[in-house]
Design a protein around this nucleic acid. Structure first.
Length: 342
DNA sequence: AAGGCGGGGTG
DNA sequence: CACCCAGCCTT
């Protein structure tokens, strides 16, 4: 810990942040509740996901699965359907498994011990701290990307936010700043400040309640923080799909839980040789993901023999389904577009 | 400790 | 195009 930090009045800054939150905090559907189920769901949905992107998903999810029991009893496909378009689909799989864990291991009552919460699939240190502080008043900072950004700016601290030690490092800073009687509100305040004011780019420093406390601002260096050493790597991925159609039905198959698009549905990626004369359309589209540049070749195939169509489906483990029937399934975004345009 | 995992938005 | 986001899991 450097001397500049020892001299700072941490708690005073935390109180100022809390005061700002009382008048400027966002009005969100998962605020004003201490139901650990709801807080849990919202924390998972908003991992690596902006509020504007996931808000409808949250509301729809809570309406359809209002409690642990309902979620645990649901079909996996339906849970994933409610995750369609959010990305990082292992979250949906894990959230379903965790609901069943809560039913089996805790009689349907959301656990309140840190070690127990951490055992639930898909819940790490951040989410456990968020649930415990907001729902149970535990004095734990919920250190996420907002904390890294806000704290590194306040202290003009070049600690590498992408390092594995960042969580513990910023947890110590946050703990000194946190008013111990309102840990949940403090954590929510830091998130709101980070997303609305202390934004990654173009921070609204003239609206910031902590402006005078912010070393980066006073030095004119807000753009230098947080420091992150990791660079996003983009790799190329080429995919081929065949939209095999007969009498209004087409073939789909569920992906495994490895690689991308876990448990989502896709089309066959190869066909038998005697179908190749029945290819009527072909197109190639590129699609940019965060870590991958996709090139997708898609062919439309219309076999003229129902027996061969069903035989091919059976051998490949494919299901023949109508366009209406496919609405209950989740397709990757790039493939979903083809459903209506092919 | 490092790499992988989506999709939407922004500059 | 690069980078960001209420991170977690696997290796």
């Amino acid at each position: 810990m450097t001397s500049k930090k020892q001299n700072a009045d941490f708690l005073h800054v935390g109180e100022k942040l809390l005061a700002w939150y009382r008048t400027h905090g966002r009005d969100l559907p998962f605020r004003n509740t201490r139901d650990p189920y709801k807080i849990w769901i919202c924390e998972i949905i908003f991992q690596q996901t902006r509020i504007s992107q996931g808000l409808n998903h949250y509301n729809n999810f809570i309406t359809r699965f209002p409690d642990v029991q309902t979620l645990a009893d649901a079909e996996s496909d339906e849970v994933i359907l409610y995750w369609k378009g959010l990305g990082y689909y292992s979250r949906a799989i894990n959230i379903h498994k965790a609901a069943q864990q809560i039913m089996n291991d805790y009689g349907g009552n959301f656990p309140s011990a840190y070690e127990d919460i951490l055992k639930l699939r898909g819940i790490g240190k951040y989410t456990a701290a968020a649930i415990l502080s907001i729902c149970f008043g535990a004095v734990l900072p919920a250190v996420d990307g907002n904390f890294y950004r806000v704290l590194s700016r306040i202290f003009a601290d070049d600690f590498d936010s992408s390092s594995s030690k960042a969580f513990n490092y910023f947890s110590e800073l946050a703990l000194m700043m946190m008013p111990k009687n309102e840990p949940g509100h403090f954590n929510e305040a830091m998130m709101d400040l980070g997303s609305e004011v202390c934004r990654p780019r173009n921070p609204k420093c003239d609206e910031c309640p902590l402006q005078t406390d912010c070393l980066a601002y006073n030095l004119g260096l807000t753009t230098k923080f947080p420091v992150k050493s990791k660079r996003t790597k983009v790799s190329d991925l080429e995919l081929t799909y065949y939209f095999v159609e007969f009498a209004g039905n087409f073939l789909i198959r569920q992906r495994g839980d490895d690689f991308i698009w876990k448990k989502l549905y896709e089309f066959p990626n190869e066909i038998r040789d005697d179908f190749k004369d029945n290819i009527s359309h072909q197109k190639t589209v590129t699609h940019q993901l965060t870590h991958k540049k996709l090139t997708i070749h898609i062919y439309k195939v219309s076999p003229d023999d129902e027996k061969l169509f069903l035989e091919f489906a059976s051998e490949g483990g494919f299901t023949a389904i109508s366009l209406e029937g496919s609405h209950g399934k989740s397709f990757p975004k790039p493939l979903e577009n083809y459903l209506t345009t092919i």
